[in-house]
Amino acid sequence: MIENIGFSELLMVGLVALLVIGPERLPKAARLLGFWISKTRNMVASVKEEIKEEFHAEEIRQMLKEQAGSLEDLQGVLDEMNSSTHDLKTSLDKLPQHVEQSIKSPHDK
């Protein structure tokens, strides 16, 4: 907003201020105006920083939520692998019995 004001506009505002406020009070009014402009800029910068931090925190929350979903998927795969491993172990444990029965069966006949 202030960037769009040219030198001629500033000169006009200065002349009007000089006529309205007067030469003895103009320096004090200019310092006060500068103080409030500085305060306003600092406040706006602070609000922008807070908003930026909040967006960053929200991005982190979203990423953690996505990673939690991925971890749940990974846990499901691990559970499935454990189940398959258990079934395979059970089958392998029964294999000697089947082999032994297969060996005995032809001799019994």
Rank of each mutant, 00 (worst) to 15 (best):
D79G: 04
E9P: 02
P27N: 02
E54Y: 06
M43I: 05
M43W: 09
E58L: 07
G34L: 05
V20N: 04
G34V: 04
M81H: 11
V16M: 13
E59H: 08
S38A: 11
L64H: 02
L74D: 06
E53W: 05
S8F: 05
V44H: 09
M12Y: 13
Q97L: 08
V77R: 11
V44N: 09
E24P: 00
M81L: 11
R61A: 06
Q67C: 06
G6K: 09
A45W: 07
L74H: 10
E3R: 14
E49G: 08
D73E: 13
F7R: 08
V16G: 05
A68C: 00
L11Y: 02
R25K: 14
K28D: 12
L74N: 11
K52Y: 07
L71I: 10
L15G: 02
E59Q: 12
R61F: 02
G14C: 06
L18D: 03
E58N: 08
P27R: 01
V13G: 03
S105A: 13
Q97C: 00
L95D: 00
A45D: 10
S83F: 05
L95K: 09
S83Y: 09
V99P: 01
L95I: 04
F55C: 04
F55D: 08
S84W: 13
E66A: 13
D73R: 15
E72K: 14
E50S: 09
P23V: 00
P23G: 01
F35S: 09
F7S: 06
G22E: 06
